[in-house]
Design a protein around this nucleic acid. Structure first.
Length: 425
RNA sequence: GGAGAGGUGGCCGAGUGGUCGAAGGCGCGCCCCUGCUAAGGGCGUAUAGGAGAAAUCUUAUCGAGGGUUCAAAUCCCUCCCUCUCCGCCA
């Protein structure tokens, strides 16, 4: 959520910046609404003040044994007037708030303009795509060719499309990747590992920005309560600090979390139908940092570098792009995507997305820290990114490390996690 | 699933209709006293919204929401959470 004060004080500047995200802020309507609100709030509070004063007077008069009929009578009109004003005010405030919950975060000044993916800018490229002297296979074909590999047909039988069964060596490689990533981030990068619920309530999803606008992307559970499967560990992990006031000494908070992620993929029917690129269920190692506003810019760079390090240790060629305004997420102020080279597609595909949310999520969550300089609670900044998407990393390894005979070499960084196994197949 | 007990400020804990944003204690901050240490004294110490240049004023908040009332932490209803016992269970 954006700061309502900001919207009041400089609506034009704000609207201009939101335009970069293809969002048009209705500033005339907002000003009108806020004007009404101001008037009504003043009137309502005056009436409440009057009511409180008179009520206390009644209490005193009664204690003194005086007659209170007259004052009691004078309250009647005040009461009805207050009730109607209060109702109106509540309705106005709700309307204002609901609108605000649908306004995206403001993009950072450094975010390039653009309508879609084509507007993204390549920041850097690492590694050289390997030249193969044979016809490369995609990961689905490779996986289905292995004795202990990928089985999409069985997953479709068990559940439906966009699921996979991993078997034997491939399942081991998948698990090895998770261990490798968690170890690297905890040992080398100073993150605390957390294990969190995979089912969350609507408050948590509202806090990180998935609700109310993107409910159709989520799997909602049936039952009395509004429970959802998490679309990313970002939701439970970031919400650890919801409604908290953190001491400055405890910052930055650095969490790493492995979790499954569940996405309905509504509206992506034609895309990536083959293979593991786009699944309803996948696993991810997520990095989350809770920081002071002063350090959020550098933290985004640092956290992105932590995700990059995994790709580098696995010797997977990738590039880093900064997303343009039109391609960014709703709550993000700035996003770097890491894209890994996929030989079968001869292009780079997203494997990590690292974003700074400034105080946008923090305001929704009421996540604050006590600033020693002011002694007052102030909003924290939140930054998160995948480090990395495990399923897609598996895909990248299978494709980049494939051999002419269909076997797959295990990257040296992972061999220890594979009980010494050097090849799949 | 059945029965019961609770949810109050950073923490503990009092408060069953009014003068209660809330006693008391702990913690924390500033000051005083004390030549160290220990102890003692005074003052202060929630969050959010609004008006105002500011001092300040004002509204709301005692798990959440609704209700009764001139007035609710206190009474009523619904929900959530925690704890204890029984049952079931990975």
């Amino acid at each position: 959520m954006l700061d309502p004060k900001w919207i009041r004080s400089e609506p034009e500047a704000l609207a201009k910046r939101l335009l970069k995200k293809k969002y048009s802020l209705n500033i005339e309507w907002l000003a009108e609404l806020d004007g009404q609100r101001k008037q009504l709030q003043l009137e309502t509070e005056n009436l409440q003040n009057e009511r409180n004063t008179r009520s206390k007077a009644i209490g005193k008069a009664k204690a003194a044994g005086e007659n209170v009929d007259a004052i009691l009578q004078s309250m009647e009109q005040l009461k009805t007037e207050l009730e109607t004003k209060k109702e109106l005010l509540n309705a106005l405030q709700l309307e204002f708030h609901s609108y605000l919950m649908g306004v995206p975060n403001v993009p950072d000044e450094s975010v390039p303009p653009g309508n879609d993916e084509s507007g993204n800018l390549v920041v850097s490229t690492w590694g050289e795509p390997k030249q193969f002297d044979f016809a490369v296979k995609d990961h689905a074909e490779l996986g289905e060719g292995l004795a202990e590999g990928l089985d999409f047909a069985t997953a479709a039988k068990i559940t439906g499309s966009r699921f996979v069964v991993m078997r034997g060596q491939v399942a081991l490689l998948h698990r090895a990747l998770i261990q490798f990533m968690l170890n690297t981030h905890t040992r080398d990068h100073g993150y605390e590992e957390v294990n969190v619920p995979y089912i969350v309530n609507s408050d948590s999803l509202t806090g990180t920005g998935q609700l109310p606008k993107f409910e159709e992307d989520l799997f909602k559970l049936r039952g009395e309560q509004a429970y959802y499967l998490i679309p990313t560990a970002e939701v439970p992990v970031t919400n650890i600090v919801r409604d908290e006031i953190l001491e400055s000494a405890s910052l930055p908070i650095k969490f790493v979390c492995h979790s499954p992620c569940f996405r309905s993929e509504a509206g992506s029917y034609g895309k990536d139908t083959k293979g593991m690129i786009r699944q309803h269920q996948f696993e991810k190692v997520e990095l989350v940092q809770i920081v002071t506003p002063q350090t959020s810019d550098s933290t985004l760079e640092e956290l992105t570098a932590h995700a990059e390090r995994i790709l580098q240790l696995l010797h997977l060629p990738y590039r880093k792009v900064i997303l343009c305004g039109g391609d960014m997420g709703f709550a993000s102020a700035k996003t770097y995507d890491l894209e890994v080279w996929l030989p079968s597609q001869t292009c780079y595909r997203e494997i990590s997305s690292c974003s700074s949310f400034t105080d946008y999520q923090a305001r929704r969550m009421q996540a604050r820290w006590r600033n020693p300089a002011t002694g007052k609670p102030e909003l924290v900044h939140t930054i998160n990114g995948s480090g990395l998407a495990v399923g897609r990393t598996l895909v990248a390894i299978m494709e980049n490390y494939q051999e002419a005979d269909g076997r797959i070499r295990i990257p040296s960084a992972l061999v220890a996690y594979m009980h010494g196994l050097e090849y799949l197949g």
